[in-house]
Simulated scan of single mutants.
Amino acid sequence: MKRAVIIGATSGIGYEVAKLLLLQGWNIGVAGRRQSSLEAFQTIAPDHIAIQALDVTESDSEAKLQRLIEKLGGMDLFLLSSGIGKQNMELKPDIEQSIISTNVSGFTRMVDAAFLYFKKQGHGHLAVISSIAGTKGLGAAPAYSATKRYQNIYIDALEQLAHLQKLNIRFTDIRPGFVDTDLLSSGTDYPMLMKPGIVGESIVKALKRKKRIAIIDGRYAFIVFFWRMIPQWLWKRMPVKTR
């Protein structure tokens, strides 16, 4: 029986991925901050779902992740789907620091713990949901785009570390565009908004194929291709923001 641990699976993208993996015969370990949401999710398939309340910004999150793995009976796939983001053109310090706490400190805690578990086990698949926002610095969301770039580079580094240590660990960096989830519930009109169910299907396909980088979807892959070609002197003059 294949076993997957998903951090942030009680809503949004993580929820859709978890449901699809369950349909494909996986046992799922689900972590999130709200115990009530976890218990509600577990009712979907009580015999195939283990739960654990966990906040990635807290120092005990690694120990709680290990507890969840033990409840599940092991881990073959780890998916980090927890993250926050917000436009902050006013650079309000509390917003920037909150994003950094979750997307950098919390991210690092979780992926390091998963990496060390797979190293000890001898194999594993470590996947994260970052964003196309890590491609370029977005003036409307400085901390968000910078933290997503951090995530991209961190996974690059872990992949190299695994190779240096001759470890059998596969990595997948999933980079969606705008997805219609609670993360984007501020009332802003986001362009090319994607449905979570469709995004979840694309992610599961990418995980099955063990793709190294998965940009979701094709429209955003096209955009990112051209973003990378724009020189910095021109990029700073471009009004890249949501409407």
Rank of each mutant, 00 (worst) to 15 (best):
W227K: 02
Q165F: 12
F41A: 03
I223E: 07
K205Q: 14
L207D: 00
T147D: 02
K86F: 05
S101K: 13
T10F: 11
E159M: 09
Y220P: 00
L116Q: 15
Q160R: 12
N88G: 05
D189W: 07
A127S: 13
G85Y: 06
K92D: 11
K236N: 09
I155L: 14
G32L: 08
S105Y: 11
T135F: 05
A45V: 06
V240C: 04
P176K: 03
H123P: 03
F107N: 00
I223S: 06
S101M: 10
A31I: 07
R209W: 08
P46A: 13
Q165I: 06
V179G: 00
L116D: 15
G122S: 14
F226W: 15
D47E: 15
Q35P: 03
N152R: 07
E16I: 01
L207P: 00
T43I: 12
K71F: 11
I230L: 11
F115H: 05
T181N: 09
I13M: 08
G8I: 07
L65K: 00
G14S: 10
E70Y: 09
N88C: 08
N88M: 08
G124T: 07
P142N: 09
D94K: 11
M194I: 06
S81M: 09
I6N: 00
S131N: 08
M238I: 14
P93K: 13
Q160H: 12
I213A: 03
N168D: 15
K71L: 14
F78A: 03
L167Y: 05
S130G: 04
L207F: 07
I13A: 02
L80G: 00
R228E: 15
Q160V: 10
T242W: 10
A141I: 02
D60H: 12
P191R: 10
I198D: 09
P231D: 11
V204C: 09
D180N: 15
Y144L: 07
M194A: 11
R33G: 05
M75Q: 12
A162M: 10
G177Y: 03
K86R: 15
A9D: 04
P231F: 09
I84H: 01
I155Y: 00
Y154T: 11
A31K: 01
I51H: 01
H163R: 13
Y144W: 09
E39C: 06
E70D: 14
D189M: 12
L77G: 02
Q121C: 09
Q87F: 05
